[in-house]
Nucleic acid binder design. Structure first.
Lengths: 354, 354
DNA sequence: CTGTTAGCGCATTCAG
DNA sequence: CTGAATGCGCTAACAG
């Protein structure tokens, strides 16, 4: 290489050529080249192809269409039937309102596949997307990335992949707090009804339960761990299993308020009382928890705040400020009337259901 | 007028002139005239003014911009904190999904003024609007009409003005059914806690209550009618008033499940039992009604269906088919465990609260 | 033949 | 003053 190649006529690729040059090569006007360069829509397919070739030949790279803000943020929930999703939506709606954007809500029952939602939202155009529980797959995340649309998953079912924004609660701490509360009341045999064990939050709560027992010097007993799926019915069924044990527990940690509700019914049908014979702790702190009789001791999840945090995270991602990848919000134990010290004497297993 | 004026050269204003004529008069091309005629955006203000003048001089009238469908439908709720609105939103979401449009949800606490929402939705562009409870004022309705955007009010607070689309439940029938059910059980002294009496549905329920009494030959007694506002607290307070009467009622018709919940608490604090001493009927049939102890007898309002009906109505209004102005959905009495025959002997008023 | 829509380039404006 | 980005009105192709 010579020491003075700055005026060498052979030094062609010293940066991108002027648009006029490209325009001449493609046989179109300069504005048309500019439009293709910026992916504007008002160019025919034929012309666009010609110009693209010419651009690339001259060291240009076609830019992504600079999508103007739509003023819309999408949220997808699996169901609105539970108060759970509803609280998240409410929080998201409040935050959207503060940010001056509108919230587009989609209810789509499939807990695993949000592909249709992703495609639809991107086709319409959106400033950001919140997926509740469902984690988009790699292709879907790429589609969002290509469109420069940020995504946040609230309470992801599975461990969120590296780099995916998410919002959650301190599930491990919550499971620990619930169990430690029972230990402090004097319980030694504490059963639990978990959620779906394919679900990250359920596993975290279970781990918290185990840790609390170990910290108290109680050896975890797998016969006291029943697997449920967060529903009322699972709570009812699995509570019966626990109550039928020869050495039945004096307290039950449920994976959700719904599960606790089912367990409460089972305890009553077994002829036992809450909290005199069996203490019960829920998880979520849905409105119904306060209205149950007895009012349910439960782990409060800040669902409204989680919904709001999701939209806040989108906003910060868009504005380039903020580098939070996961926002984890604190749970708090709410002590009500469904927990008490264990009875002096625990009688044997309840008799089978009629 | 002559019998043959079809070829008379003086018969100038026989309909609008061709666009070519207008174009020549305005000194622009024919497509530009077409754009102005259709209120398309890509015409400068100066040119638009010239062309508009020429158009009007030649018997044309500028058309409203034919807004292409946005694929969005707006819904406004006063709050998402009650399960009530949530059910309506859920129904609307399902129907929107069926129609292939997206639902934009706005939570705006003001129960009377939806002006900000109306302006915002119309500025962005929307295919239809659902207002829950709040009735838009005349100016707002006119703004919708100008933009050719249909509006539906769900369960309007006030009697909806002539021509405004609305969806409601058979509130009068519901109030009648609840009361007649108690009459059939043998109750003669039946109290009621109404909703806000500025609200149309509350008045209809009260009228149904009165009608049922009269049909049963029972003279309505105004001391048994307490005015509430649909809340838990009102139920609690007004139930105390009823229970403190010298000749206290053996049954209470509440204006909502929330009100019934408050009343239930008051009855218990008064040392009485439901339904043994006092029967209780709610209104709405929210999920909590089934989970109360005792499970609440209540008038089911098809809230999900009402939400769906609202979006259906919008769709029919848009497609020009369908001339329904108000969809009124049937309520049904759900008999559970909070109602029973009255006690043989009714003791006097309960003693005052501590 | 009348009216509508797509797509291109002129002229202007904007950024450095 | 140069290179790039738009607003806007034209021609051309199309639809009824």
């Amino acid at each position: 290489m010579t020491a003075h190649d700055h005026d060498s006529p052979a030094a062609v690729p010293a940066g991108p050529a002027p648009l006029a040059t490209v325009a001449a090569a493609a046989g179109v006007s300069v504005p048309t080249v500019s439009k293709v360069l910026n992916s504007r829509p008002d160019v025919s397919a034929a012309t666009r192809a010609k110009v693209q070739a010419a651009l690339e030949a001259h060291g240009h790279t076609v830019r992504r269409p600079v999508s103007k803000p739509t003023g819309l943020v999408d949220i997808r929930v699996v169901s609105l039937e539970s108060t759970w999703s509803e609280a998240v939506v409410r929080g998201a709606a409040e935050s959207a309102r503060r940010h001056g954007v509108d919230l587009v809500i989609t209810v789509d029952p499939d807990p695993d596949d949000c592909g249709a939602w992703v495609r639809h939202a991107l086709a319409r155009g959106t400033d950001g997307a919140v997926s509740v529980v469902t984690v988009p797959d790699a292709a879907e995340r790429q589609a969002f990335a290509d469109a420069l649309v940020p995504v946040v998953v609230v309470d992801p079912r599975v461990r969120p992949p590296e780099g995916l924004l998410s919002v959650g609660a301190t599930n491990w701490q919550g499971g620990l707090d619930a169990t430690a509360h029972l230990v402090a009341l004097g319980h030694r045999r504490i059963g639990t009804i978990t959620g779906d064990d394919a679900q990250a939050n359920a596993l975290a709560r279970l781990a918290g339960y185990r840790t609390a027992l170990i910290q108290a010097g109680i050896a975890p007993d797998d016969s006291l761990v029943r697997r449920g799926d967060f529903t009322v019915d699972a709570g009812y069924e699995e509570a019966w299993h626990l109550l039928s044990l020869d050495d039945r527990p004096t307290a039950i940690v449920a994976s959700s308020d719904d599960t606790a509700l089912g367990a409460l019914r089972a305890v009553r049908e077994a002829g036992l009382r809450v909290p005199d014979d069996v203490s019960l702790v829920g998880f979520d702190d849905l409105p119904i928890a306060a209205w149950l009789d007895p009012a349910l001791t439960t782990v409060h999840q800040p669902l409204v705040e989680m919904g709001a945090a999701a939209v806040d995270l989108l906003h910060r991602a868009r504005s380039g400020t903020g580098h939070t990848v996961r926002a984890e919000l604190a749970t708090t134990l709410v002590e009500r009337a469904s927990t008490a010290p264990p009875p002096e004497v625990v009688r044997g297993p309840v008799r089978a259901r009629t």
